[in-house]
Amino acid sequence: MFKKFAFAACAAVAFTATLSSAALARDLLRVGTEPTFAPFEFLDTETKQYSGFDMDLIRAVADKAGYDVEILNMGFDALIPALKTKTIDVIAAGLSITEERAKRVDFTKPYYTSGISMIVRQADAKKFATFANLEGQRLAVQIGTTGADYAKGIKNAKVQSFNTTSEAFLDLQSGNAAAVVMDRPVLAYFLKTQPKAGKSLKLQPEIMDAQSYGFAVDKGNTELLNKLNKAYDELVASGEAKKIHDKWFAE
């Protein structure tokens, strides 16, 4: 009788432990990014972790929504196809909210407003003071970005697309391009983290086509979209979203 009681007690404890583990288990949110878009997403060479404003924010949003996060690295132009094939659950990659993209994905509430600007060599600062001055010039851009789209609309511009921002900046520094055309925060972060480049390059004040960034989920995934929006609202209300913003931006 005692052995039966002891066995039953042990079984009850094991069953309770299993229930507790199940209650603590969280779903995994697979986040796709293209980590060459500092300060939004990049690979920290010291920690070997994906870092940046987007990475901090999506981790905080996911945690608030009850998810664990797995970051998946892929090319920028592969992000939406990966979402459509359910390889990932959400995109966090400085993705501008556009009408064209909104036909294929659903965006969360905007979490950052950016705009297109340009960096030129200091010696050319007066010559290329505005985007109107870039007509007929060779321009360096990152493939698949709104900066690349805008540059292609400049009259007679010769647009050279690169896979990463660093390649575009190198093209400018080597004298091949008249300007690098990208989102302003990316340009400002580059100059902040590359003081030597800051001595020879200049971020021009003009800002074009202000756009908002949002996280993206597959079209029709309302359940996940609502969870992410609710979590973001809670982070804003608590002040945590502002703390994350202020960690990466002086503005």
Rank of each mutant, 00 (worst) to 15 (best):
L24S: 05
V105N: 06
P81E: 11
G66M: 02
P110L: 02
A17G: 10
K152V: 04
D233R: 10
A12E: 00
L24C: 11
K199A: 08
T108Q: 01
E240D: 13
M55L: 10
A93G: 12
L83E: 10
D54W: 02
G153Q: 14
Q211D: 00
R104D: 12
N226S: 14
K48F: 10
A25S: 08
A188Y: 12
T85W: 15
K152C: 08
M118D: 03
L201P: 02
F2R: 15
N156W: 13
A216Q: 05
D63S: 11
R26I: 02
G239E: 01
V31Y: 14
M55Q: 03
T113A: 06
D68Y: 10
E41Q: 11
I244C: 04
L95P: 07
A14M: 12
L28G: 02
V180C: 09
H245S: 02
Y232R: 13
L225M: 07
T130Y: 07
Y111Q: 10
S96H: 13
N226K: 14
A93E: 08
P195A: 01
A23Q: 15
G32F: 06
D68M: 12
P195L: 12
F162E: 04
D124T: 05
T87Q: 15
L225H: 03
T87K: 15
L139F: 13
A93V: 02
I143C: 13
A60W: 08
P110R: 12
L235Y: 08
E41S: 12
K86N: 08
T98Q: 12
K199D: 11
K196C: 04
I116A: 07
V159L: 02
E46I: 01
N163C: 07
E100Y: 13
K3P: 08
G175C: 08
D218A: 15
C10L: 00
L228Y: 01
N133A: 06
E100S: 04
K230Q: 14
P39N: 09
A168R: 10
I143N: 10
A78K: 15
N156C: 03
K109E: 15
A8G: 11
A65H: 03
T85F: 13
N221V: 06
Y112S: 00
P35W: 11
T113S: 14
K3N: 10
V69A: 13
D27K: 14
L235S: 09
D68K: 12
A250K: 01
K103L: 05
Y232S: 09
A178I: 05
L79T: 01
T33P: 00
H245P: 00
I80Y: 11
D27W: 08
G198I: 11
A179F: 11
D77W: 03
E41Y: 08
R59H: 03
S238R: 06
V105K: 06
K219Y: 07
K84Q: 15
R59I: 04
V13D: 06
T36E: 02
L235N: 04
I58C: 05
K152E: 06
I116Y: 07
A12N: 01
Q204Y: 00
V186Q: 11
F190G: 03
I154W: 01
G66K: 04
F37D: 06
S200D: 08
Q49W: 04
N176Y: 14
V90A: 07
T222Y: 09
D209E: 15
M1E: 05
F42N: 03
L225V: 00
R30N: 00
M1P: 11
S212F: 09
